[in-house]
Nucleic acid binder design. Structure first.
Length: 580
DNA sequence: GCCGTTTTCGGCCCGACTGTTTTCAGTCG
C-alpha cells in the first residue's frame, strides 16, 4: 500500500530539489515539497485514486496531479527526466552534506564539474576549490567533516534511544544550572518513530544565556561543539547525533515550545492562520503585525487559543489535517498512557522472555494494570520448545499467582501463535478454546509474494480463536523491511471478523506504524497497544506504542486494552466466535 | 505550482548562525 505513495513522494521531492538547484522559482519548489509531504503522508494508496480524488489532496493541483498520473501510468515523468538530463543525480547527492545546499551544489557542478560526493572529496584534497566564491578554508573543512559524519553515523536513531538521551540532557542541564523550565521539543516530543536530532528548550533571562550555553557544551554528552551563540548552541554526541539548545526569555516559553516542537509543516499552517488575522507568530510570541503588540506567548494553550484553536497534542502536529480538525472542533480525544488498563502481549522465561511469570505480574501490578496477559510462544517457533504440557502447567501457575495476587491485575492466559504460510496456526480450535486470548503473528516466510502474504493474514483473522494480529508487518526499523501485503484488504478482514490489530510498542518495531493506523481506523478496526515485553523493564515500552497510537489519531474507544475487563472479554468472545 | 469568508491574481513562515560577502547570501530548522 505504502509503496506507490513513497515512490511518488520521493519523485516529487527530487523534482523540488532539482528546481532549487537550477535556480527555479522558490515557491514552485515549495509547492512540490508540500505535495510530496501530503502524498507521502496520505493514508490511502494514491495509485488507486482518480484525478479528482488526487486533486482533493491538499497541495495537489492540476499540474502535480498530471505528473503523478503520468508516473503511475508510465513509470516516469517527462518533465523530471528532462531536468535530470540537465543535473546529474550526484549533484543532488551533494546537498546531503551539511552546509551544502542547492546553491553551493550548483556552483560546484557548474564551475568545477563536480557531480558526486567522492569527486568533491578529491577536489578538496587536491585544493581545487581555492578560487570558488563562497568556499573559503573553513567551508572546505566543513565539507570533509560532513562527509565523514555522513559515512559513519548515517541516518536516524530509534525513538526509544532518543527519548533516553533527551531526558538525560534535560536532567543534566537542570542540575548544572538550576533551570526550572527546560524541556525537549522537536520530533522526540511528537514521538516520531525515528529521530534525526534532538531539540532542547530552556527559558532564562538574557543575562543567564551564556552560563546556560556553557553548561550545555560542558555536558558529558557534548563530544563536539558544532556552533555556539547566545541564543542557540549545537553539540554532537560521540555517535554523531546533533543536539540543539535554544534559550528563550521565560515570557516566550509557550511560543517557543510550539515553534520548536514543529513539525515545520504544522507551524506553517498555524502561521498562515496568524497572517490571515493580521498577526505574526514567531518563537517569541504572537504579535500584531502592525505595531508589534504581543498578544500571547506564555503557554502553548494561550497561543493556540488566541488564534481560535484548542491546544493540539504534539503527536498530531504533522499537517495531516489537525489544524482543520481543530478549527471545526473535531480533534480526537487521544488515548493516553493512563488510559491503558492492561497489556495483552508479553513473554516469560517459559519461552524467550528473561523474567518469570511472577516477576512480570508483580511489575504489571506496580504499573497499576487492571488486567494482564501472558502470551508465550507456541510450538511452531521450534526453538522455543513449547508443548501442550508446558503451557497447561503455566496456566496452573497463573491460577496460583492469581490467588496470591488478589483482584488486580486479573491474569489472562494467552499465547502468541505463529501464522503459517497458508494462514494456519499452531493448535486446533478445541485447544485454543482454553485460552483467554490468542495473539497471532508472522515469524517466518517473510519473502512470500503480496498475494500469499495477504491471504495468510486474512485467514488468520478469520480464525475464530485469533483475537489480535501481532506486529502485523513484521518490520524492524532499519533492519528488516515490512512484508509485502495488501494492508487495506487485511484491515477490512479485521473489521469484518472483530480481530484487533496490534500496535507493537517495541521501539524497533512500532508496528503498525502511524500511517497504517490512520488507514485502519477509518475502516473501523480496533487496536491493542502491546509491549511484547521480554523483560520487566520492557513493559514500559507501551509509552512509545501510545505515542504511535496518538500519531494515528486514536482515542481510548479504539483501543481494546483501554477498555474495562468486562468489555474486553466481550470483544474477545465476539459474535461469530464460539463461546468459551 | 497552489490557493481563495479579504483574493481567480498576488501572495506564499520566520529567525539564527556561519563564513567570508566589508553589508549579506546560504543553509538550517
Amino acid at each position: 500500500m505504502a509503496r506507490p505513495n513513497e515512490e511518488v513522494e520521493a519523485l516529487l521531492r527530487e523534482y523540488a530539489d532539482l528546481i532549487a538547484i537550477t535556480g527555479g522559482d522558490a515557491f514552485k519548489q515549495r509547492a512540490y515539497e508540500r505535495a510530496a509531504r501530503a502524498i507521502g503522508g496520505h493514508p490511502g494508496d494514491v495509485s488507486r485514486l482518480g484525478t479528482k480524488e488526487l486533486r482533493d489532496i491538499s497541495g495537489v493541483g492540476k499540474s502535480i496531479a498530471d505528473k503523478v498520473e503520468e508516473y503511475l501510468r508510465t513509470g516516469h515523468v517527462a518533465a523530471l527526466e528532462e531536468t535530470r538530463r540537465e543535473i546529474p543525480g550526484g549533484v543532488r547527492e551533494l546537498m546531503s552534506i551539511p552546509t551544502l545546499g542547492p546553491k553551493k551544489a550548483l556552483a560546484l557542478y557548474r564551475d568545477l564539474g563536480i557531480a558526486s560526493v567522492d569527486e568533491l572529496v578529491s577536489a578538496v584534497h587536491e585544493d581545487r576549490l581555492g578560487g570558488l566564491k563562497g568556499f573559503g578554508p573553513k567551508s572546505r573543512e566543513n565539507i570533509l567533516h560532513g562527509v565523514e559524519l555522513m559515512r559513519q553515523a548515517h541516518g536516524r536513531i530509534l525513538l526509544g534511544t532518543a527519548v533516553g538521551i533527551a531526558e538525560d540532557v534535560v536532567a543534566g542541564l537542570r542540575e548544572a544550572t538550576g533551570l526550572k523550565r527546560c524541556a525537549y521539543a522537536g520530533s522526540v516530543r511528537r514521538m516520531r518513530e525515528t529521530i534525526g536530532d534532538i531539540d532542547v528548550l530552556a527559558a532564562a533571562p538574557e543575562e543567564e544565556a551564556e552560563r546556560i550555553m556553557a553548561a550545555f557544551t560542558g555536558l558529558p554528552q557534548a563530544a563536539e561543539v558544532v556552533m555556539s551563540g547566545r541564543k542557540k548552541t549545537s553539540i554532537r554526541n560521540a555517535r554523531g547525533l546533533q543536539l540543539d539548545l535554544r534559550v528563550l526569555p521565560p515570557d516566550s516559553w509557550g511560543a517557543g515550545m510550539l515553534y520548536f516542537t514543529g513539525s515545520q509543516a504544522h507551524n506553517i499552517r498555524v502561521r498562515e492562520i496568524a497572517v490571515r488575522k493580521g498577526l505574526k507568530l514567531s518563537e517569541y510570541g504572537l504579535f500584531e503585525a502592525k505595531g508589534g503588540r504581543k498578544l500571547a506567548a506564555r503557554t502553548e494553550e494561550e497561543v493556540y487559543r488566541r488564534l481560535g484553536l484548542p491546544w493540539i497534542a504534539p503527536a498530531l502536529r504533522e499537517d495531516r489535517g489537525e489544524v482543520a480538525a481543530a478549527l471545526n472542533g473535531e480533534l480526537p480525544e487521544l488515548v493516553t498512557e493512563r488510559d491503558l488498563r492492561g497489556d495483552l502481549h508479553t513473554h516469560t522465561d517459559l519461552t524467550d522472555g528473561l523474567a518469570s511469570a511472577a516477576e512480570m505480574v508483580a511489575e504489571a501490578a506496580a504499573r497499576g494494570y487492571a488486567y494482564f496477559a501472558i502470551t508465550d510462544h507456541a510450538p511452531e517457533l521450534y526453538m522455543q520448545q513449547m508443548t501442550r504440557e508446558k503451557i497447561l502447567a503455566q496456566r496452573e501457575e497463573l491460577r496460583r499467582l492469581a490467588e496470591r495476587q488478589g483482584r488486580r491485575p486479573r491474569l489472562l492466559h494467552g499465547t502468541e501463535l505463529n501464522i503459517g504460510p497458508e494462514g494456519e496456526v499452531d493448535w486446533p480450535g478445541d485447544f485454543l478454546a482454553g485460552f483467554d486470548l490468542c495473539v497471532a503473528s508472522v515469524h517466518s516466510h517473510f519473502g512470500l509474494d503480496r498475494k500469499a502474504q495477504t491471504r495468510r493474514l486474512i485467514r488468520a483473522c478469520e480464525n475464530p480463536y485469533v483475537n489480535i494480529i501481532g506486529h502485523p508487518t513484521t518490520r524492524k526499523i532499519g533492519q528488516r523491511a515490512p512484508i509485502d501485503v495488501d494492508l487495506e484488504a487485511v484491515f477490512a478482514a479485521c473489521a469484518r471478523t472483530g480481530t484487533a490489530m496490534e500496535i507493537n510498542a517495541h521501539p524497533n518495531r512500532l508496528d503498525l506504524k502511524d500511517e497504517h493506523i490512520l488507514l485502519a481506523r477509518r475502516q473501523g478496526v480496533k487496536f491493542a497497544i502491546d509491549s511484547d515485553a521480554h523483560t520487566v523493564g520492557e513493559l514500559g515500552h507501551t509509552r512509545y506504542g501510545v505515542g504511535t497510537a496518538q500519531r494515528g489519531w486514536l482515542t481510548k474507544e479504539d483501543v481494546i486494552n483501554a477498555w474495562p475487563l468486562g468489555r474486553l472479554r466481550r470483544f474477545l468472545r465476539a459474535p461469530g466466535r464460539p463461546g468459551r
